[in-house]
Structure formats: structure tokens, C-alpha cells
Design a binder for these strands. Structure first.
Lengths: 341, 341
DNA sequence: CTGTTAGCGCGTTCAG
DNA sequence: CTGAACGCGCTAACAG
């Protein structure tokens, strides 16, 4: 006695290669070949099959396809946040790089938490991606091990100040901080203040700070006042901490952990009637649009987030096997003078 | 004669349930049960298996799992852009809503192009998602048909001014525009200018404009000057178009297509020495952080993008079968007086 | 150019 | 509480 198959009740009468093959009176493999534009097929057959595909509204099941071909055409991405516009910018670059290919990106947000990142990486790896793009070098031991053993291409984005697992794409935050320090010293500033946000979460901000400190110390200078907030960076935090800084000490330049914070500083100065740069110079990091459009353009270091995403994709698309040698791609940075420092 | 299996050369000695079962000396089903915390298993067996899992670094293959269970645990998301911070904010809400569940989101960007959106939807549907979250009501006929036939839950986000395919979550942009108009008329403004960006791509901006026009016309007023740019919204476009508008006609209030544009207007006024709101009032839309932190907080309409994402997920997680009746969820909006209008 | 065969790795019965 | 059998929908290899 034959039992009717009856697993989950199908939402709709699902159409598979089978139905298409039946309708077009060809084999399943022929349908498969046509759907993937692979191999030679007679034009008449192709037309016949495509008509059946349209008639039935057939959409190939990628899950089955990936399992059979052992190739998921997926790229996993982990970024720490979406509230800071720089990460959406990186995603745009990734998106642009992927547009021409058949790859799909699967994006996860770690909230600057490396334990959560570990969970996310495990979840992504379960989808057998061709590559995984992750932010920075700061991972748990388990994450690093999983990534290493998985054998998939791994790109660590944003930072190039450490040795990558496979590929690193980004810029040297340490050197950027150093360059900023030299620039400001060259401009004649001597009493430096620093306005920042949570360092334990954002290691790159810390690297920039270290680079800045190094440049100052080489010139026999040091940072005379710090105003560092606990949470993430934001315009409001930048504004509040600038007030703090000004109450704390007399400085002639405030260096910020990033442009969001610096724009907050600019708004504080505008509100308090503090003239920039002569009463207080303001210097940011990133080169966001908002800073460029201020009545007085913000002095900052420009980084290229879009390019980082794009180069990351190029790096892995150029070869899906992980090579022996590790690669570091420097997308550079540039001091933007602006009018605030 | 038995042929050895020899498909694609595996990157690494891939570990599957089979290896774990062998190592732990149990059956594959037992391993499967344990990995999914499903069904009763003796504590001793569980411990034995988990040790093997750890030792081998086993990560279950979700692709195979999804195929077998006919359930992908995937949620597809399509947003038009990431450059406008409102969409990353929606994604954050989605992310928050998904955090507790086992679902993964697959995000695609349409670049405000409904033909591209169609391609993306087809690609996402191929992954057999449990639901698809898409932006607005403006889709191609084919997209609408695919979505409809797929049987999966569909949430149209941001807007509630049309009838949804399944669920709509957002706010009425038409009413928001109308409310803004009434507010500004109540404040005594009579000569209205409008500063906008590309309408054909951003239908919601158009709806707000229509609502505004309606309110004005009811009061016997109309918009006396328009400065509308071709491309997407941005701070720089807002700034430039404000200059245009001021050169064009004498208006006492400028209403902007959104806060990015309005902030550009504010910067223009600051630079040109135009006092807000008495010489020119400025009114935006969205309620972005940047507007709130300006020396003079921007007058605007607040919408809740995070909430939209969160509610969208709640809506589909509450029932994975598409119900007969369509649902509309209003996340509301609120006039924020600020100091610029 | 096209069909046949044999899995991909796992979840789901159902029997013990 | 555990195991065996079967199949999810598709693609790869090979034969014709």
C-alpha cells in the first residue's frame, strides 16, 4: 500500500524542476542547464522550456541548488553597527562590488560585542558562504579558530594595523592619528584636548589616539585634557563632551574620535559663540558629508569606506581558494584641511 | 566495482553529522536531535555527542537542514538605499526584532529602481524565505505577482497610504505633509517655498508634498516657489537648492523633502547670515539626530524608523501563515516644533 | 545536444 | 530514549 507523501502542508502548489520538465517534455537536467545558462542547448528546447517556466512561474530553489553543487553563492558580512553611517557606506561598496556577480550578501550586526560576533559568525558559516567579510581584528579565540578552519576566504575590513587571517582591507588608523598630530603641530597648535567615546568597543579609535599621542610626544607635547564618554559616538555626545573639555582646561585644539563627535563639537562652539579655529580648533576623523557641508567645513582625515567594501569584494572574487600568503590592501587616507583647524 | 565518490575537492576535511555520529558512537539522528535541542535525549548521550561536536568543530550545514525541513529560517529585506540613514535605522529595528529568534536576514539594496527590485525579489524568493520585508508600495507588476504567489509573508514598510499585499507597517506620509502644512499655517507663515529631490524615485516625498499642498489649498494658500533637484536627497543638495529658492522668490518658510535637505538649508542660512525662523523658517521631515543637535534644533516631523523595522518583524513572527485579511500598522508621527519654524 | 543515475547533508517519519 | 530508511529539489558526471 502506497502512502501519499504528506510532510508540511505546502503553502502553495510548489513548482519544481520536475513540473517544468513534465510540462516542457524534457528531462530535469535540461531544465537545470537552461536555468543556469550552462552547457549547449538547442534554441527550440530553450524556448519550449522557458515558456513552461513562465507559465508555471517557476523559481529555482537555491537551497537545493547550493546543496547539490556544494556552492552557496553567499557572502557573509559582519559589521559592528549601522548607526554610524560609515558601516552602511562599507555595505554600499560591498553591494556595488557584488552587483555584477551572482553572489548574495548576508549581513549581521554585532553591536560591537565580540561574543555576539562569535555567534553571528557561527550562524553565517552554517550557510557555507564562499567568503566572510568581518570588521577589524578584534575577535574571540573561537571566532578566529572557526574562521581559520572553515577554509573560506576571510576579509578583515577597516583596519590594516595587524596581521590578517587571510586578507585585510582598510587603512592604518595609527598612521592616520599620527598624521593628524603632525598636521596640527605644523599648524602651530600646542595645547591639545581629546574628545572621545568608548575605546574598549572601538579599537580603531584607540589606534588613532595612540598615533596622535606618538606624534605629540615626538614634538615634546602631550594631550592636556581628555573628555571621554562611555557609550558609542554621536553628535550629542560630542557636543556634551566638548562642553566638559572646555570647562576642564584651556586648550587650543580639540581632536575628536570621529566626525560625528566633532560635528557635535562644532555645534557646541556655534551655540556658545566660540570662534573656530582661533578660539578653539576642531579636528575630526572620517570625512563625512555632513562635515564638508558645514558653513565652515570640518577639518578631518578622510577615509574611503565605500572603497573598502568594494576592494574587499574584489579581493575575494579574484580567487575563491584561500591562498597561502596573507594580503593587506591599503585604501589610504588624506588630511582634509577644512576651516576648523 | 564501487567507484569512490569524488566530486569537488573539499577545501578542508568537511565534518558532517556522519563524522560526529561515528566519533560519538551514536546514530546520525541522535546527533541531529541534540543539535536542535529537540526531543528527549539522555544526558550522558548528549554530553558524549557535544564533546565530539567540539572536538571536530562541527557546524551543522543549514543549507542541508533547510532543504530537509523545508524551512529556511530566512527573512528577506529590500531597501532602496543605505546612504539615507533612515534605512539603516529600519534595519536596526529589524535586527532587534530578529535577535531573539533563529532567523537570519538577507538584505538587498534596490537603488530606488523597481526593476532592480524585481530581480532582487526573485533572488531572495529563490532562498525560500519565511517572509520578505520590502519598502513601500511601488513595485513592478511582476514583483507584485511573485510576492503574491509565493505565499510567504510580505511586509511593505515605511508607508501606509495604499492597500498592502499582506501587511503594511509605517506612517501616512500624506497626513504627515498635511499636518506639517497646518502647523506652519498656524504659526502664521503665508509664503511657502518647497525644496525637494527626485520624486519619481521617492514616492513618499511626493505624498508628503501632496499633503502639504492640500493643507495650504484649504487655507487658500499655495506654494509660491519650488526648487527641486534631480538626484537623491543630500545635505549639499539641500544647501544648493535653498540658494536657488532664495534667488527665485521671497518666501517666509521653506519646507523640505526631508531632514538631510533641511539641514543643508540650515547650513546655507548660517553661512549667508539669514536668521531663522524670522527671515526664513525651515521645516524638515524625519527627525534625525543631526537636526536635534543643531545650535537651533530643526523643526520637523518625527517618524520612528526603528519602530517600523521592529513592528514589521513582530507582524510576521506572530504567524508564519499568510492570513486572509490584510493588516496595516500605523507607527505614527509627531510634529517637533524645534526652533527653525 | 539530451537523458540517466546518484548523491549533496540533514530532518522526519516510524519502528523498536 | 534511539536508530533506519527515505526524500527535500537540485546538479554533476557520464553515457548516449
Amino acid at each position: 500500500m502506497i502512502k501519499p507523501k504528506q510532510r508540511l502542508p505546502d503553502r502553495k502548489s510548489k513548482v519544481t524542476v520536475r513540473e517544468v520538465a513534465l510540462q516542457a517534455d524534457v528531462s530535469e537536467s535540461t531544465v537545470s542547464r537552461i536555468m543556469r545558462n550552462q552547457g549547449l542547448v538547442a534554441e527550440a528546447t530553450r524556448a519550449k522550456v522557458m515558456e513552461a517556466v513562465r507559465a508555471l512561474g517557476y523559481v529555482p530553489n537555491r537551497i537545493a541548488g547550493s546543496l547539490a553543487s556544494l556552492d552557496s553563492q553567499l557572502v557573509g558580512v559582519v559589521v559592528p553597527s549601522l548607526s554610524n553611517i560609515v558601516f552602511p557606506e562599507v555595505l554600499q561598496g560591498i553591494n556595488a562590488g557584488l552587483k555584477a556577480s551572482n553572489y548574495q550578501s548576508v549581513i549581521s550586526i554585532s553591536d560591537y560585542d565580540i561574543d555576539r560576533e562569535e555567534t553571528l559568525v557561527r550562524g553565517i558559516l552554517a550557510w557555507q558562504p564562499a567568503a566572510i567579510l568581518i570588521t577589524g581584528f578584534d575577535h574571540t579565540v573561537a571566532t578566529r579558530r572557526m574562521l581559520d578552519q572553515s577554509g573560506v576566504r576571510v576579509v578583515e575590513m577597516m583596519d590594516i594595523d595587524s596581521a590578517p587571517i587571510d586578507v585585510a582591507v582598510g587603512m592604518s588608523h595609527r598612521r592616520a592619528g599620527y598624521a593628524a598630530g603632525q598636521y596640527l603641530i605644523g599648524k602651530g597648535y600646542r595645547r591639545f584636548g581629546y574628545v572621545g567615546h568608548d575605546w574598549t568597543a572601538d579599537r580603531r579609535a584607540r589606534l588613532r589616539y595612540d598615533g596622535l599621542s606618538e606624534a605629540l610626544s615626538e614634538a615634546g607635547l602631550s594631550i592636556v585634557a581628555h573628555a571621554i564618554a562611555d557609550g558609542p559616538s554621536s553628535v550629542s555626545t560630542g557636543r556634551e563632551q566638548t562642553a566638559q573639555l572646555c570647562a576642564m582646561a584651556k586648550v587650543d585644539v580639540a581632536v575628536y574620535s570621529n566626525d560625528d563627535m566633532a560635528v557635535g563639537g562644532v555645534f557646541y562652539c556655534q551655540g556658545a559663540g566660540i570662534r573656530m579655529p582661533d578660539q578653539l580648533a576642531v579636528f575630526g576623523f572620517n570625512g563625512l558629508e555632513i562635515g564638508r557641508e558645514l558653513p565652515q567645513p570640518l577639518s578631518t582625515v578622510r577615509s574611503n569606506r565605500f572603497l573598502i567594501g568594494q576592494r574587499a569584494i574584489e579581493a575575494i572574487l579574484s580567487g575563491l581558494e584561500r591562498p597561502e600568503t596573507k594580503t593587506t590592501i591599503d585604501t589610504g587616507f588624506e588630511i582634509y584641511s577644512g576651516q576648523t583647524a
